[in-house]
């Protein structure tokens, strides 16, 4: 589903001494099916922004469009939107509450009036996507799992609703590298398979380089940059000023290009680790072939 923000602002605690404008006059548009990385310094308004996508926060001003549905400051009913937009909060494991894992994952589908057997089926699929052994884990208490497992159960709880739009707020914060990769790979597969529109909030440039095809850079509650990873990563100095960095791969290519002659420069499209290593390998093998 296409998502667009039109001059959206949000103010916390309006009319109190604690009033705080979290996002101001934000406009952008995301085509259906894209994987968008949302980046920005701490406090730049990322979490506030994404809570507008499923109507948890209503804008103080402006309009949000998700597919056919529009949200304005006057909008009241948003229940139908919630079944289409799945939102995974920062530290989602804190929302677990049922007696068993399977019941917790079925909570969402059942809330949207799915029959029990279908909800069960979806819960099973969702748990498999996040890489948990279904038979082993389904009847355990979610409170007796490890932190990483709890996180996966919570994410499965959102995936089981089979949303068309998936919004994830730092889903890998505080996990080990292998766990991060496993979770994001699962999400990426479902994103491709179901042609979801996905928004991923993260502080890791490596993660956005690997998965995103669009980047949205926030600073002080405003959109500072939007574009493909290649476009955004080429503005290294501007990113620096926003206290952000380019991925390791990009600075590697940059430094390598400084030493290489003009005709052998590496392309800036090589910001994904796999692409870069594959390219360098073939390059080295060619060199070796010539050497012989």
């Amino acid at each position: 589903m296409q998502i667009s923000f039109e001059n959206v602002s949000y103010v916390y605690g309006k009319g109190t001494p604690f009033e705080k404008a979290a996002i101001s006059d934000v406009s952008f548009s995301i085509p259906s099916g894209s994987f968008v990385g949302v980046i920005g310094q701490t406090g730049s308004g990322k979490s506030t922004l994404i809570q507008h996508v499923n109507g948890l926060l209503k804008p103080s001003a402006g309009t949000i469009r998700v597919g056919e549905i529009a949200i304005t400051p006057e909008t009241k009913k948003v229940h139908s939107l919630r079944s289409k937009v799945g939102l995974v909060f920062q530290y989602p494991e804190h929302q677990l509450f049922e007696e068993t894992v399977i019941q917790d994952v079925m909570y969402g589908p059942l809330n949207f009036d799915l029959p029990k057997d279908l909800a069960y089926q979806r819960a099973k699929e969702a748990l498999e996507i996040v890489g948990l052994p279904f038979e082993e884990i389904k009847d355990r208490s979610p409170f007796h799992l490890s932190g990483g497992q709890m996180r996966r159960v919570a994410i499965a709880g959102v995936l089981a609703m089979q949303p068309k739009v998936l919004v994830l707020d730092e889903p890998t914060a505080g996990l080990d590298p292998a766990g991060r990769k496993a979770i994001l790979n699962g999400i990426y597969q479902i994103h491709k398979a179901e042609q979801l529109t996905t928004l991923l909030v993260t502080h890791s440039m490596e993660e956005v380089a690997r998965y995103a095809d669009q980047l949205l850079v926030l600073a002080n509650g405003r959109v500072a940059m939007q574009g493909t990873p290649e476009e955004v990563f080429s503005k290294k100095e501007e990113l620096r000023e926003l206290a952000l960095d380019v991925p390791e791969t990009v600075s590697f290519v940059h430094r390598l290009n400084e030493r290489l002659p003009k005709d052998q420069q590496l392309s800036p499209t090589l910001y994904k680790e796999e692409d870069l290593t594959a390219y360098l390998l073939t390059l080295l093998q060619q060199k070796k072939g010539e050497g012989r």
């Binding site: 229940h79 079944s83 909060f89 989602p92 804190h94 929302q95 509450f97 609703m161």
Partner: peptide
């Protein structure tokens, strides 16, 4: 927590006594 459960379709505003009480459990336990 309320927002997280609302994202999963919990409805704290409408419905009968029992469904509301059940919805509260999803907040109180976490």
């Amino acid at each position: 927590i309320m927002k997280a459960q609302m994202s999963r379709g919990a409805n704290f505003e409408s419905g009968g006594m029992i469904s509301r009480a059940k919805a509260m459990i999803a907040i109180v336990i976490p």
